[in-house]
C-alpha cells in the first residue's frame, strides 16, 4: 500500500491457498534480468512487484554459440539457448540471497521432458527465497519428437498438471505466441491447474546477412522481443483475458508506463518488463513511477480498477 493511498497491490494467484500478493504489478521478465542480483547495484530492485529469474533447467546448460543477439528495427532477436547454472546452483547460490529480499522472486523453469520439469519443481519445493514458479513451455519436447510443449493444448496441460502435482508454490505458465490458437492453450492450462498465465514469450524470427548469404544468428533462428512485438502481445493478452478466469500477466515490448497501462486495460493484472531492461536498467522502475503518476492524475486509487477496462 502506498502512503498516499494509491493501492497498486495485486493478487496473482487467487486460486492458490496462500496466494501470491504483489505490492505492485511491475515484474521483470525472465532472461533479461539475470537472478536480480546483477541489477541490485544499479537500481532499487526491492521496489519491483516481482522478479522472474533466468530460465532454469535441471542440469547446467551451455546455451548456443555466438552470435546470440541481433538487433532489429524496434526489436531484439536472441538465441541464447537457455544458458544457465542449473537448478541445484540456483538453490545453493541464489535462493539464500533472495531469502533476504522483500521483492518476491519467481523461478522460471524449462525442461525437455515432463520428468525434467517435475524434477526441477520438486527440487525447488520449500526453498526459502522462492515465491513461485513460472513454467516456460516453449522448449522442444524430446519425447514428443521436438514439438514444443506450448504449441498443443494437450502437452501444455500435461506439463502444467504434472508440475502442479509436485509443487506447493503458485504456478504461472508462460505461453508462446507461435501457435494457431493461444486461447485454446490458455484454457487447457487453466483447467490443468495454473494459478496465472503470462504471455507472450518471444516470437520466432530470423535475420539474414546478405553479404554472407547466411543467418546472422549462429543457431539460424531466434526469438524476437522488444517494442516490435508489442501490438502482437497486446492483442493476445486481450484475447486470452477474454476467456480465462485466472490472472494474465502481460509481456512483450513494454518500455514505458503507457505500454504497461495498455496491457492492464487489455486485461492484464500485472506486466513484465523484459528487453527494455537492457536498453535502460531503470525501465521497470520508470514504468512503476509512470503508472503511479497516471493513477494520481486520473484520481484512480486502485490499480485493479484499471484491469480490463478496454475489454469490449
Amino acid at each position: 500500500m502506498e502512503s498516499n493511498s494509491l493501492n497498486l497491490g495485486i493478487q496473482l494467484a487467487p486460486r492458490h491457498p496462500e496466494g501470491l500478493m504483489l505490492d505492485n504489478p511491475v515484474m521483470t521478465a525472465s532472461g533479461t534480468f539475470g537472478y536480480g542480483i546483477e541489477y541490485s547495484e544499479l537500481i532499487d530492485i526491492q521496489k519491483l512487484g516481482a522478479i522472474i529469474c533466468k530460465g532454469t533447467t535441471l542440469m547446467p546448460r551451455k546455451g548456443n554459440p555466438q552470435p546470440r543477439l541481433v538487433e532489429t528495427v524496434g526489436g531484439l532477436l536472441n538465441s541464447v539457448g537457455l544458458e544457465n547454472i542449473g537448478v541445484d546452483a540456483v538453490i545453493r547460490d541464489k535462493a539464500p540471497i533472495w531469502a533476504n529480499w522483500r521483492v518476491p522472486v519467481i523461478v522460471n523453469i524449462a525442461g525437455e521432458t515432463i520428468d525434467e520439469y517435475v524434477s526441477i519443481a520438486a527440487k525447488l519445493e520449500d526453498t526459502p527465497g522462492v515465491s513461485g514458479i513460472e513454467l516456460n513451455i516453449s522448449c522442444p519436447n524430446i519425447s514428443a519428437g521436438g514439438i514444443e510443449f506450448g504449441v498443443t493444448p494437450r502437452l501444455a496441460a500435461e506439463v502444467t498438471s504434472a508440475v502442479k502435482a509436485v509443487t506447493s508454490f503458485p504456478l504461472i505458465v508462460k505461453l508462446s505466441p507461435n501457435v494457431t490458437d493461444i486461447k485454446e492453450i490458455a484454457l487447457a492450462v487453466e483447467r490443468a491447474g495454473a494459478d496465472a498465465i503470462s504471455l507472450i514469450n518471444t516470437v520466432k524470427g530470423m535475420v539474414i546477412d546478405i553479404s554472407k548469404g547466411e543467418s546472422r544468428l549462429e543457431s539460424i533462428t531466434g526469438g524476437l522481443s522488444g517494442p516490435a512485438i508489442k501490438p502482437v502481445a497486446l492483442y493476445l493478452v486481450y484475447e486470452v483475458a477474454k476467456v480465462i478466469h485466472i490472472p494474465v500477466i502481460g509481456c512483450g515490448g513494454i518500455c514505458c508506463a503507457a505500454d504497461a497501462l495498455g496491457f492492464i486495460m487489455a486485461g492484464a493484472s500485472a506486466v513484465q518488463v523484459g528487453t527494455a531492461n537492457l536498453t535502460n536498467p531503470h525501465a521497470a522502475l520508470d514504468v512503476l513511477e509512470g503508472i503511479k503518476y497516471f493513477m494520481r492524475d486520473r484520481g484512480i486509487q486502485k490499480l485493479t480498477d484499471l484491469i480490463s477496462v478496454a475489454q469490449a
Partner: peptide, 20 residues
Amino acid sequence: RIGCGIGACYGCSINTRKGL
C-alpha cells in the same frame, strides 16, 4: 555484441578453456 553489459542476459557468453 553485448546485451545488458552486466552479466544478466547471457547474450555475450563465449566458450573458453576455462568454461563459459
